[in-house]
Design a protein around this nucleic acid. Structure first.
Length: 203
DNA sequence: TGAATGATTTACT
DNA sequence: GTAAATCATTCAA
């Protein structure tokens, strides 16, 4: 039995042009595809979070803050918002909803599907390690996503989402945003409880 | 110009 | 369990 060929057709812009909570939930189970110089890398998304500026205190676009960094979130849906934190980690987000609505979905964890050798090389870990992609900074390193991906159109051919199997989704509070008080407690994190690659809850 | 800090990971006690 | 690594972005002055 040969493994069936993966369907890597990019999802249409209409998928992203919906309310951010809808898109965040819909992203769980979808495939994240990145064509790099080394080869194609594919992962199944198992954990996301919604950020709904301007009213969401935990969002970078809170209060309608429009700067060079947040600019892409104010544009049309279906683009990549990539930013750098803690002096060493990138985070990959998907701009949703539509122009003028700075809403985005943070992709927090994926399960390796294809291109394992490239992920393992970038992460300097064995291909079997769960640490390969079980966190927002980890998956960016594994996929080779950095500031060059900022603003990329996810309806292009380089970096995009593709259809995947439907899975059950659980919700919880978001992680790492305690500074945002009551907004941190909203159940805006979506994940597949059966996946071993979901990032662990905060200590 | 300068200081504070963060949508994290990793190593160490 | 706690702390260090490390720098772009932001805000105050």
């Amino acid at each position: 039995m040969k493994k069936p060929v993966l369907d890597l057709t990019p999802l249409p812009r209409a998928f992203y042009a919906r309310p951010v909570l809808t898109v965040a939930r819909a992203c769980v189970g979808k495939l994240l595809v990145h064509y790099t110089a080394e080869g194609v890398i594919v992962g199944r998304i198992v954990e996301t979070e919604a950020y709904r500026g301007p009213e969401d205190r935990a969002a970078h676009s809170f209060g309608g803050r429009r700067t060079a960094r947040t600019e892409v979130m104010f544009g049309p849906a279906g683009h990549a918002y990539v930013f750098f934190v803690y002096g060493m980690h990138y985070q990959f987000n998907i701009v949703t909803t539509g122009a003028g609505h700075p809403h985005a979905v943070l992709v927090r964890a994926v399960e390796p599907v294809a291109g394992l050798e490239h992920m393992a090389k970038r992460r300097k870990l064995p291909e079997t390690s769960r640490e390969l992609t079980s966190g927002p900074g980890k998956l960016c390193q594994a996929f080779g996503i950095d500031k060059r991906a900022y603003g990329l159109d996810l309806c292009g051919r380089e970096l995009y989402l593709a259809h995947g199997a439907r899975t059950k989704t659980q919700t919880s509070a978001r992680i790492g945003v305690q500074y945002a008080a009551d907004w941190a407690e909203k159940p805006w994190r979506f994940f597949d409880p059966k996946s071993p690659y979901v990032s662990r809850a905060r200590p």
